[in-house]
Simulated assay, not measured.
Amino acid sequence: MNHVGYCVSGALTVETMDGRRTSIAAGDSYTIPPGHDSWVDGDQAFVGIEFVSAAEFAKPAPDSA
Rank of each mutant, 00 (worst) to 15 (best):
N2F: 03
N2Y: 06
H3K: 07
H3A: 06
H3I: 04
V4W: 02
G5E: 05
C7T: 09
C7V: 13
C7I: 12
V8H: 12
V8A: 12
V8K: 12
V8E: 13
S9P: 09
A11F: 00
L12M: 11
L12Y: 05
T13P: 00
V14Y: 01
V14P: 01
V14W: 01
V14F: 04
E15F: 02
T16M: 00
T16F: 01
M17Q: 13
M17T: 11
D18K: 08
D18S: 11
D18E: 11
G19Q: 02
G19L: 05
R20D: 02
R20M: 00
R21T: 10
R21S: 05
R21M: 03
R21Q: 10
T22H: 10
T22V: 08
A26S: 13
G27A: 05
D28E: 07
S29N: 08
Y30V: 03
T31F: 10
I32S: 01
I32F: 02
P34V: 12
G35L: 02
G35W: 00
H36L: 09
D37V: 14
W39N: 13
V40D: 02
V40I: 11
V40F: 01
V40T: 08
V40C: 04
V40R: 08
D41Q: 12
D41W: 01
D41K: 07
G42T: 08
D43W: 00
D43K: 09
Q44G: 05
Q44Y: 05
A45Y: 12
A45E: 14
A45T: 14
F46M: 13
F46A: 10
V47T: 15
V47R: 15
G48P: 07
I49M: 14
I49A: 13
E50I: 08
F51P: 11
F51V: 15
F51T: 15
S53N: 15
A54E: 13
A55E: 15
A58K: 11
K59Y: 00
K59M: 06
P60N: 09
P62G: 06
D63W: 04
D63P: 03
S64P: 04
S64A: 13
A65D: 04
A65Y: 01
A65L: 03
A65Q: 00
